[in-house]
Write a protein that binds this DNA or RNA. Structure first.
Lengths: 196, 196
DNA sequence: AATGAAAGCGGACCACGGTCCGTTTCGACC
DNA sequence: GGTCGAAACGGACCGTGGTCCGCTTTCATT
């Protein structure tokens, strides 16, 4: 008798066919998103291109948003790596304020270029997606603390990040506000929050 | 020969049956949202309760989001009236900083209580919905200007409003951050932006 | 290699948002 | 009241995300 009661946090290894299918699905989704644009990619199409049934997509990725979050993750992980260990001023080495501004600019550009995919991926409150959000909060919080900012740093971080949200940005673009102006406005905000 | 070329901005009066139907649809939608909750209200249901065909819903309200925006508008208009001409500190009469803080608190509460409906209504870039967004920007911009804040006031207004967005708020609530803490954090943000 | 059961699979099926177009209603003009 | 064009109507229809359940595959055990 070994382990009749379920152990908490057992990794639950993945069966070989399941792993194969997940790879196939991700590859198909990635390719389709790249060629057709995220809004023209249906779950049926992904399934047939990947050569699996539709049910398999939903078992592996929960929902369309979940699948898109997984696709997005490919580039997002690279970006996070740049932030953590890339060259300055985004990566470590530059003074904190410079890093913070570089972070915002980089996040802004990323949100604009991957806007459609990000919108297709957000709204799912999966662990992966929430982790992505909290990575940014964690990083900004860290930089604010290095800048000797006092107060509720988590809340301040959220407040500083909120205007970079793709939905907010797109609203401003519809109002014919240029990216440069948005960027300058954000810099101003940061300086005020940091305290001159 | 009168007016063969279409005149710009002619109000285009509404036929009597059209007006009647719009009223019936709005009433049905309002009632259904109140009793069942917005997420359980389908367009088919609204149509059948209102006693009209589904096509009529979409002709009048463009989309589900448009219909929900119309429903939301009922309460939103009352709120805007309070802001413009209600009692202080939300309405005129109080000093600008107090008004600004009261505005944020009020907006925060409203977003929390009407969260589901607001989420169902946003995303449509209809004139009505964009007007609602820009009303808030306009008001905050006005208060900031009274507070002698200098800089790109539109961008600052957007930045100050962004953390009050229902999506941002719900994320924080999932992280077990209390409303009081969110409120205090926002007050802090405002004070920093205004400049102590 | 045989076996058994759990994990995985897949595609028929459903619900809902949104469209289309033949039919009905309105109301301006005679 | 009759006529007629335009506007509005409504419900059949479609595409898409998501579910369900009977069948298949994997793999630990022997």
């Amino acid at each position: 008798m070994t382990n009749l009661l379920p152990m908490a946090d057992e990794p639950a290894p993945e069966r070989s066919d399941a792993a194969r299918n997940r790879q196939a699905i991700l590859a198909a989704a990635l390719e389709l998103v790249r060629t057709r644009g995220v809004d023209c990619v249906t779950m049926d199409t992904v399934a047939s291109v990947a050569g699996v049934g539709k049910g398999t997509l939903f078992r592996r990725f929960e929902s369309r948003e979940g699948l898109m979050a997984a696709v997005l993750n490919e580039s997002e992980a690279a970006w996070q790596a740049d932030v953590i260990s890339g060259p300055p001023p985004l990566g470590p080495g530059a003074p904190p304020l410079e890093r913070l501004l570089a972070f915002g600019h980089s996040r802004l550009r990323t949100n604009v270029t991957h806007g459609a995919l990000i919108k297709a991926a957000t709204g799912d409150s999966s662990a992966r997606s929430r982790a992505a959000a909290s990575f940014a909060v964690m990083h900004v919080r860290h930089l604010l603390s290095e800048l000797r900012v006092t107060g509720d740093l988590v809340l301040l971080s959220i407040a500083v990040l909120a205007p970079l949200d793709i939905v907010v940005i797109e609203q401003q673009q519809r109002d014919n506000i240029s990216l440069e102006r948005i960027e300058a406005g954000w810099d101003d905000l940061v300086r005020r929050v940091v305290g001159c």
